[in-house]
C-alpha cells in the first residue's frame, strides 16, 4: 500500500512539474493570436475529470466503511485492551492468535497517545488514537506469525519515542 502511494505521489508531482516546465519554456515567447481563448480548452475536461476521479475514489475508499471489522470473516473478534500512560502501554493479551479477527480497545489514562501497530519489518499496519475518556476501537487480523510492536503515534511528551510494547503472534 505505502509503496503504491509513494509511486502515485511521485508520478503526479512529476506530471505537475512537466506541465509547469512546458509552460515556462514557452512563457518568454511572443503571444500567438488569441491565447486566452486557446488556454481555456483544457478547462472543461480538467473540471469534469477531477469530479469523476473524486466521485470514483470517494466511493472506492469509503465502501466498505474503513472502520468496520474484517469483512472476510464473521467470527466474533477477540477483544484486546490497550491502555496507554506516560510513557508505557499495558496490553492485556500480548500473545495473539493467527487468522483470528482482533479488536483492540484503546484508551489513555493521561494525555493523547497513538496506538500504532507495526510488524517486524517496521511497517505500520494500522493505528488509532488513544484518548483519555474515550475508547477507540481498531480491528486487525494477523495473517503472519511473528513479533509485532506498538509504537506511540501521538506526541505525548519527553519519552514519546520510547513508548513501545511487544506483541507476539503464535502460529
Amino acid at each position: 500500500m505505502q509503496e503504491f502511494l509513494w509511486l502515485l505521489t511521485l508520478s503526479l508531482v512529476a506530471l505537475l512539474a512537466v506541465i509547469f516546465v512546458a509552460v515556462i519554456r514557452q512563457a518568454a515567447m511572443p503571444a500567438a493570436a488569441a491565447v486566452p481563448a486557446r488556454s481555456g480548452r483544457y478547462r472543461q475536461p480538467l473540471f469534469w475529470g477531477l469530479i469523476i476521479v473524486g466521485v470514483a475514489v470517494t466511493y472506492g475508499t469509503l465502501v466498505p466503511w474503513p472502520y468496520s471489522p474484517d469483512p472476510r470473516t464473521t467470527d466474533t473478534p477477540l477483544r484486546v485492551n490497550a491502555i496507554s500512560e506516560q510513557w508505557s502501554w499495558s496490553v492485556d493479551h500480548t500473545e495473539l492468535p493467527l487468522n483470528k479477527p482482533i479488536v483492540f480497545f484503546v484508551t489513555s489514562r493521561d494525555v493523547n497517545h497513538g496506538f500504532g501497530l507495526y510488524d517486524s519489518d517496521r511497517r505500520l499496519l494500522t493505528q488509532v488514537q488513544a484518548m483519555p475518556g474515550y475508547v477507540n476501537k481498531v480491528h486487525y487480523t494477523f495473517t503472519k506469525p511473528g513479533q509485532y510492536r506498538v509504537l506511540c503515534l501521538e506526541y505525548c511528551g519527553l519519552i514519546h519515542h520510547d513508548m513501545i510494547a511487544e506483541l507476539t503472534v503464535k502460529p
Binding site: M1, Q2, L5, L8, T9, L12, V13, L16, V57, T61, L62, P66, Y67, G114, G116, L124, L125, T126, Q127, L153, E154
Partner: peptide, 19 residues
C-alpha cells in the same frame, strides 16, 4: 496538495497519519 489529498483518505490515513 497531492500527498496531502492522498493522506486525506481514511484508508491511507490508517498507515500514514503521524508518520
Amino acid at each position: 496538495v497531492i500527498p496531502a489529498i492522498i493522506d486525506g483518505m481514511i484508508v491511507v490515513n490508517k498507515v500514514m497519519h503521524n508518520t
